[in-house]
Design a protein around this nucleic acid. Sequence first.
DNA 1: TAGATTGTTAATCGATTAACAATC
DNA 2: TAGATTGTTAATCGATTAACAATC
Lengths: 206, 206
Amino acid sequence: MSTQPISDVVISRLPLYLRTLEFLEKEGRQVTSSQELATRLGFSSAQIRKDLSYFGEFGKQGTGYAIPFLQSKLREILNIDHLWEVGVIGAGDLGRALVHYQGFAAQGFRIVAIFDDAPKKIGMAVGALTVQSMGEVARVVRESKLQIMILAVPAQVAQAVANQLVELGVRAILNYAPITLSVPAAVRVYYLDPVVGLQSMAYYLK
Amino acid sequence: MSTQPISDVVISRLPLYLRTLEFLEKEGRQVTSSQELATRLGFSSAQIRKDLSYFGEFGKQGTGYAIPFLQSKLREILNIDHLWEVGVIGAGDLGRALVHYQGFAAQGFRIVAIFDDAPKKIGMAVGALTVQSMGEVARVVRESKLQIMILAVPAQVAQAVANQLVELGVRAILNYAPITLSVPAAVRVYYLDPVVGLQSMAYYLK
DNA sequence: TAGATTGTTAATCGATTAACAATC
DNA sequence: TAGATTGTTAATCGATTAACAATC
């Protein structure tokens, strides 16, 4: 264990470890090993042990890792041992699909608001939520102390919306818009762009 | 320039270069520099020059890069100088949102089919397409020679569907299901999981 | 005990960047 | 010409892995 800042690539693998543990747990398993996790994820077992070692000692020699224990440790480390409330900007097909998606709550996140600026969308029901106008973003982010927002707006407006979110103190943006956002270093952005994925895979389809 | 295989991290940045060039082009710009691209993307200019140098010499000393020329070179390199036909498995909210998304065609991809196994979804219109049954996947993939498929199905069935796609000769899978797929090394998988993004960002929200 | 697996070190591997000659 | 910027080399930085003592 160490106190130096831990690399981003290490952090980005922790959710995959957690997800694999959840999979094994659902199969009724109690214990796993770095080797088993490695095989399932396509990593080396040394990498998994090294990644975990940045945070503590969670295994037993000769035995491996107790699945529920390691899960709970990873949730603590990732800061998802409680539910984060999240807002969605953009009530297009994607924004609405995100609100309908049932996979967030079990993983530490709950979507509590959705916003759009199109008059015909404002007031529309999406699941248990109602689309609010963009004018409400500031109030809702402040009142609910939202720190994480999902951007599901067209590329042309994404930077302007991001600026507004940064201004309001939002600290993490899950960005579906196909644009690299310019934000202060303290604000995290995670990019999800299907086109980037398709284009980089196309390279290999010679 | 060299003929050794080029690292995946290099390839994954090329779509970002292309996207930035398109942005500058829309602003009416004719020429850019590695420094300008670097600033917009948060990379170093040396990295951009090095990445491009794996594929050729596209710039002019003292001047920089002609935007339309570099765009067309990147499209060639990425193998997107023609339109790829793509199929979507899963006609849930996400699958339908993907079919409706207008951003693919200009980037080299066209969704030509959508499949689901729920009887109530089969036959449903989604944009210009009609949801087909899973029984049709084999026929359509073969007839249209689809090499790229998008997986927008629940995690529990994703591996089984992936197996079927691999069997049919599909070579690239854009995977929205929250599971690491096990596929032969020759098959590319690109993962898009919002939960992984949210969880890794939550780490920093101490 | 014998076998298995951890946590960690040191070596290796690979990616990034600083620097600069070449040249537009 | 003077200034700017490329393409490339070599150095640096950082991430991965092999190996193994410790120990369950």
